[in-house]
């Protein structure tokens, strides 16, 4: 038996984040999360669905994204206007700091939301693009774990590209 409530006429699912916060989402939103859709289709969405890899902060964002996309797509507006609307929404939605972006990206991967995954990946790629190594390390807080020798070797490789 799923967690759907008959009161609203709409199926509602409960998603539980890693830190125990429970979100209530409509079916139109939930099915965008491929992981959950499989559960719904298999009628395995028990009282609530535990999402162990996503924190409440990120899950809230993900749900916001899915909600907006679901509403825009079913809003009855013409395709081009909907596209424009989604584009502006996506641009604003991606206007977050890198750490949230990374979390969103891995959440989208885990929850299997293709459009969000691609959006976050593209945004991340545009952040990395044309940056120096040092800038990338700084931006994403990555440690240089090469030994001197390894670093030399890796710098030697394709050195032509950096002349």
């Amino acid at each position: 038996m799923s967690s759907s409530t008959e009161l609203t006429e709409k199926k509602v699912f409960l998603l539980k984040s890693l830190d125990g916060v429970i979100f209530e989402v409509e079916e139109s939103v939930a099915v965008q999360l491929e992981v959950i859709r499989e559960l719904i289709e298999g009628d395995c969405a028990r009282p609530f669905i535990s999402l162990y890899n996503v924190t409440s902060e990120i899950l809230a964002l993900v749900i916001e994204y899915c909600k907006h996309h679901a509403e825009t797509c079913s809003g009855g507006t013409s395709a081009t206007i909907a596209d424009e609307d989604l584009k502006t929404f996506d641009n604003e939605f991606m206007n977050v700091d890198e750490n949230i972006l990374l979390e969103l990206c891995s959440a989208a991967d885990y929850l299997d939301i293709k459009s969000l995954f691609e959006l976050t990946c593209r945004t991340l790629a545009s952040l990395i693009k044309d940056r120096t190594i040092i800038e990338v390390r700084k931006m994403f807080n990555v440690e240089n774990d090469f030994s001197v020798v390894e670093e030399k070797a890796v710098r030697k490789e394709f050195a032509w590209a950096f002349k």
Binding site: L101, S106, D109, T120, I128, A161
Partner: peptide, 27 residues
């Protein structure tokens, strides 16, 4: 400083130059 796993997802959207650059960032 352990890189976030999601960063590697973004690699498929990078061009050759950026890939070559990114491989110098860490192991």
């Amino acid at each position: 400083g352990t890189p976030h796993e999601a960063l590697t997802f973004a690699f498929s959207y990078l061009g050759v130059k950026d890939l070559l650059s990114v491989q110098r960032v860490c192991k």
